[in-house]
Computed example of a mutant assay.
Amino acid sequence: MTNPQPGPGLVITPEGLTGRTGRYEKRLADLGGLFADETAFAARLTTDADRVVYHVDEFRPSTADGDLITGISTLSPGRVGAEFHMTRGHIHAQHDRTEIYHCLSGHGLMLMETLDGQTVVTELRPGVVAYVPPVHIHRSVNVGDTDLVTLFCYPADAGQDYDIIARAGGMRHRAVADADGDGWRLAENDGYVPR
Rank of each mutant, 00 (worst) to 15 (best):
R27C: 09
Y131Q: 12
Q5T: 14
D116V: 11
R79T: 15
D48R: 12
M171T: 02
G159W: 02
L34T: 05
D180A: 12
T74F: 02
T47N: 13
A49G: 10
D190L: 03
T87R: 05
F35R: 12
L10A: 06
R172E: 03
L115D: 08
Y101P: 00
G66L: 03
V141H: 01
I12E: 09
A187S: 13
V120D: 04
H102I: 09
I72F: 00
D37V: 07
F59E: 07
R195Q: 10
V56T: 15
L17R: 12
E123H: 13
I69Y: 05
T98M: 08
V52N: 14
R195L: 07
V143L: 03
A156K: 14
G32H: 11
L111N: 04
I69N: 07
D145G: 07
V53F: 08
N189L: 05
R20L: 01
V128A: 01
R20T: 06
I69T: 15
T146N: 14
H173K: 15
I72K: 12
H136Q: 11
R195Y: 00
R172Q: 10
I164C: 12
P134N: 06
Q160D: 10
Q5G: 07
H107C: 05
L10F: 06
A29N: 03
D57W: 06
Q118F: 02
I91Y: 02
L75A: 03
A43Y: 03
F84K: 10
V56H: 06
H90R: 14
D180C: 07
